[in-house]
Simulated scan of single mutants.
Amino acid sequence: MTQGLILIDFQKGFEAPIWGQRNNKDAETNAAGLLAAWRAGHAPVVHVRHASTQAGSPLAKGSAGFAFMDALAPKGDEPVFEKSVNSAFIGTGLEAYLRDQSIKAVVIAGLTTPHCVSTSARMAANLGFDVILAHDACATFARNGDMSWSDASMAIDPETSHQIAVAHLHGEFVRAQSCDEILKSL
């Protein structure tokens, strides 16, 4: 079975200070290790990036932050899908591409764990793909109680947010594994 690697939103805009405190400073390095292994094995790699429609977003199309992080930028004919919602499958040709390439299993890594990564992983599973989440090649930011239903006492640190998101996915939508576990199984 061909296993594809889906890299979600590894964009320079996520380096902007506006996002605040972040967990897992090694996420990009770990994802780059997966990317190198997939490329070495000539396995399918898919890049997804967010084209924000919010004014002033660091991820807005045409902004410097829209660009891929250098270590995780596409090469050659690796496909790129652009989305403007959380799911990599909504408004893109990702599902059709995976099916056309006979890819039935995917490894997902990206930013941010409880948002675009989680939404895309859930959808991939619901569409019938076998999904592995490279949990240590994902990261997120603190939730600062800035939601209209919340207050500052509801703030969630980034590591807790990440762990909760992974826990919600593991066993129901994905198999959460470390990059080392994934690389050993190749």
Rank of each mutant, 00 (worst) to 15 (best):
E181A: 15
C116K: 03
V48W: 02
A71H: 09
S118R: 01
N24T: 11
V45K: 06
A37W: 05
A155L: 07
H47P: 07
Q21H: 10
S52P: 00
C179Y: 03
T2F: 12
N24D: 13
F68Y: 11
A155I: 03
K75Q: 15
I6P: 01
I90G: 05
A73H: 04
A31S: 05
E181K: 03
G145P: 00
G91V: 08
G171W: 06
L5C: 12
E78D: 13
M69Y: 06
A152T: 06
F81C: 13
H135A: 13
R143K: 13
I164V: 10
P58D: 13
A55T: 07
N86C: 14
K184M: 13
F10D: 09
G56V: 04
S161A: 15
S57C: 14
T112Y: 06
I182T: 06
C116E: 10
K12V: 12
F81P: 08
K61C: 15
G4C: 08
N23M: 00
P17D: 14
D130V: 08
A165G: 06
D26M: 12
Q101P: 06
G91S: 09
V166Y: 03
G91D: 09
E95H: 07
D136S: 04
L98Y: 02
A67V: 02
H115P: 02
R99Q: 11
I156Y: 00
H162M: 08
A31I: 02
G128R: 00
A88E: 11
P58F: 03
G91H: 05
A167Q: 01
K75V: 15
I182P: 00
G145D: 08
P114T: 04
A121K: 01
T53V: 10
R122G: 01
S52N: 06
A105F: 10
V117D: 04
F89D: 10
P44S: 15
Q54C: 04
S87G: 10
A32N: 04
I132F: 04
G62M: 08
V45I: 11
V107L: 00
E15R: 03
E172V: 06
M69R: 04
C138S: 13
T53M: 06
A43R: 08
G41W: 07
E15N: 07
F173P: 02
F89S: 02
A125I: 03
G65A: 13
D151W: 01
A31F: 02
A36Q: 10
R143G: 14
I103N: 00
I132E: 11
R143D: 15
R22M: 10
N23Q: 04
N144S: 12
F141H: 14
G65S: 12
P158C: 07
W19F: 15
A36T: 09
E78F: 15
W19K: 06
N23L: 00
A125C: 08
V106N: 01
A37S: 12
E95F: 07
S148E: 11
A121M: 04
H170F: 03
M147F: 13
R39I: 05
F68D: 09
D136V: 03
P114N: 06
P58I: 00
T29D: 14
S63V: 09
V107H: 05
G128T: 05
